[in-house]
Design a protein around this nucleic acid. Sequence first.
DNA 1: GACTAGCATTTCATATTATGCAATTTATTT
DNA 2: AAATAAATTGCATAATATGAAATGCTAGTC
Lengths: 273, 273
Amino acid sequence: MVKTKDQNLIVRESQSAGGIQSLDSALVLLEVLAAQMGLTSLGDLAKACGIPTTKAHRYLSSFVHAGLAQTDGNGRYDLGKGAMEIGLAALSRRDIVNAVGDALPELVRDTGITALVSVWGTSGPTVVRWQRAAAPVITSLGLGTTFPILTSATGQVFLAYLPKVMTTDLLKSELTRIRRQPYLLENTFPDTAQNPTKAISALENETRELGYATVDGRFIPGLVAAAAPVLDWQNEAELAITLISSDPSAILPDAMQVQKLLEFTREFSASRG
Amino acid sequence: MVKTKDQNLIVRESQSAGGIQSLDSALVLLEVLAAQMGLTSLGDLAKACGIPTTKAHRYLSSFVHAGLAQTDGNGRYDLGKGAMEIGLAALSRRDIVNAVGDALPELVRDTGITALVSVWGTSGPTVVRWQRAAAPVITSLGLGTTFPILTSATGQVFLAYLPKVMTTDLLKSELTRIRRQPYLLENTFPDTAQNPTKAISALENETRELGYATVDGRFIPGLVAAAAPVLDWQNEAELAITLISSDPSAILPDAMQVQKLLEFTREFSASRG
DNA sequence: GACTAGCATTTCATATTATGCAATTTATTT
DNA sequence: AAATAAATTGCATAATATGAAATGCTAGTC
């Protein structure tokens, strides 16, 4: 048995002990499909997995048959409805999500503000629960919506309370995207373009010090948000709870709403000390 | 009444055309795992799939390796974190409005009736898609049109399948408006003026019991409508689909058109149960 | 603490079936 | 309309999934 040097690398063995090779191979394809941003051609998927197209095609046939994948009828593939259902089944087994979700109406009643629960998914913070207050109706948001990391309060919480390895990939791609529209960040972080690393770690520290993150009306015009993490026993964010309002005074540090939010998240975090 | 053990059996063609048998078999196992309520023993899973335990074990090894399943270390299996992530990826790509909109022509063809899709907007149910049938119905409806809550089928659906906080404001203003023209409701709800709260909650219950709402020709003279919700997995109305016709028999409970509508909305709703 | 029962897991010889090349069909571009 | 590229299908072969049986665990019982 040869000892490898790269124990730091997060590459998993391409073959699982006691598993089935073709299935391992197929599941890599499924992951790659999930990591894609939308409809993807068979060839691209095959290339990304390093397998011949003929193999990819047969795997995808089975996935489509099982409902995990869909095809638009001509050569482009995407995740299917079944994938969503299995994911929601997995979601419903996470006790934290259920507990928080059940208590969410209470938070909305106490604060009078729309609240939502997000978990960290492959494409960033993903909304999994959603409780609307009377006041504003945000039509562009809904279950399954994903937030950016840097320009949303929710994203900033995960950035500060999640291991770096989980966020770096998405962070990188978001930075390149932002470089083309630097105005998005320039007010809050004047030197982001020049020294992103420094600016970002400053943002992380600030979030950790406060215990929550906020954004003003720039991400969604006219709306402000405050987000706080529910932490697990390792002090990593298990999920984030976000309040969305049109009233800027609601996200000030000593605002009643922010206090209620922190109280709420503390109650569900692993360590109550 | 004895419950059979194989209530979790997935019924569909066991083999996919052009797919891979072992993968098909494995994906059935994954579905069965998802259908379970929690931690499940290897043997039970194998039994539910009708495969030998040795096969199930190897499949599960691969699923665990890919992160789609977890084991508690001794023989009990559950969905894993990866399942949730893939599901959320699928969810985030699913634009329900577009999906429903794309399928709308099919519904119109099947029913022969004009259909429209509404979401809940700031001023009530708002038409976002519509598809006219061959037999033209002369109306002034169009994209962006908003419906009243009490006097339209569409509005009644949202009233019944949306949290109270979202509808109360509009409902109140609508009630004051109606009080000046009580004849609008008096036939259907004789005591609305005297006891609005009671009448309205009766209406909500009726809608929820039926699973859809209808109005006859009073709101728009000569036209009738039936509306049913597309529910998200919190059982809240994500959107409503409405059929509009000049034929009163089309909105009777056992009319073909109503059945097609319910079939249609059920297909797009998150949880079927 | 040893024994047993009921699991899950691993081994191993065998045949099933996944594989990749090449051919064919289908879509896309010039 | 012809040509190019991509997806899909057929087929012979070798790789590998398979199930019976053996082994290894865990939990419950005396």
